[in-house]
């Protein structure tokens, strides 16, 4: 599981909402204007599809940056 590919996966979904949106590992993604409960569901579905890790609302709330989310998925994948 690579950070770069993870960021790209998320960025693709954020750009469906805002084509100019770019993400970095330190982006506080839940503070962005495009973030919504619907985008959260899409992100969770993509992470489930790609990494076979299923997150819920509390998991998402525990993360601030893209890297936090990446680390959480990685940790759950290895558990």
């Amino acid at each position: 599981m690579e950070l770069k590919a993870f960021i790209q996966l998320l960025e693709n979904e954020f750009q469906v909402e805002d084509e100019h949106c770019t993400l970095q590992e330190d982006t506080q993604y839940r503070s962005l204007g495009v973030w919504s409960s619907m985008l959260a569901l899409i992100v969770i579905v993509q992470i489930t599809d790609t990494y076979d890790v299923v997150l819920d609302e509390e998991d998402i709330k525990r993360t601030t940056t893209v890297r936090d989310l990446y680390e959480l998925v990685k940790q759950k994948q290895q558990a």
Partner: peptide, 12 residues
């Protein structure tokens, strides 16, 4: 309705 919780429950 907590949609994200239901998604997780359903697919697991």
């Amino acid at each position: 309705l907590k949609g994200l919780d239901i998604f997780k429950f359903s697919v697991l």
